[in-house]
Write a protein that binds this DNA or RNA. Sequence first.
DNA 1: ATGGCATTGCAACAATGA
Length: 262
Amino acid sequence: MKIVTWNVNSVRVRHDRLLAFVDRAAPDVLCLQELKCVDAQFPRDALRSRGYGAALFGQKTYNGVAVLSRGDIESVTRSFDDGEDDPQSRFICVATMGVRVASAYIPNGSLVGSDKWAYKLRWLERLNSWVRANVRPDEPFALCGDYNIAPDDQDVRVPAEWSGSTLCHEAVRGAYASLLSLGLVDLVRVRHPEGGPLTWWDYRGGAFFKDDGLRIDHVLATAPLARRLTSAVVDRDERKGEGASDHAPVIVTFDEAAASSG
DNA sequence: ATGGCATTGCAACAATGA
């Protein structure tokens, strides 16, 4: 089974690239972030014709997340249902193809000390609480998305440029570590203990040309899924050329035979 | 090389991103 997470940075602008990626990569489950559109604007039909159903949590202008799947999609939940008023569409969770998969767009945080920074920290607390309350360590579960967190300086090409930023601050790295402490495994890190590969490069300053980026998109999974892992890679080619998102897809694959044996 | 900000809503730029 192949699961992909990709911040597409506008599903309307990325329409042709999205369909081409689906045709090329052929994921079983595809988590998307930054749809930047309402559900009615999502290309359901084009994806349905390719065999994918979709669970959407869209929003006008900003944010928006989705999970696409070749299998039936059940038990869809949106946001955290924790009683907090959150007008931003950043979290959706579904059950499909024998796993539960969440697509998360963790807030950027703007500048440390800003209101957006406080929102990011609170959102991470809420995510942590959601995982503790809703995920059993012995069930196959994957938390996919744009975390806006580089877990370690090894995940940053030029750490000095990002030191203390909202992507690298010890507070968000601590929140990330807290998720791991709940039993989730950073699947790309398992396969790349040396750090990287990078998943985001700024549009400005020729960052991709200089490979000046960060690893901020992740797939965290429980042990029943992590032990089936066969590969974890970043599709750098998707960042190339005209009309690319500033994020590259993260692709993880799992052994099928081990699934039935638990 | 893979390039030198992009996207949205609005109708000129401001807001946002990471």
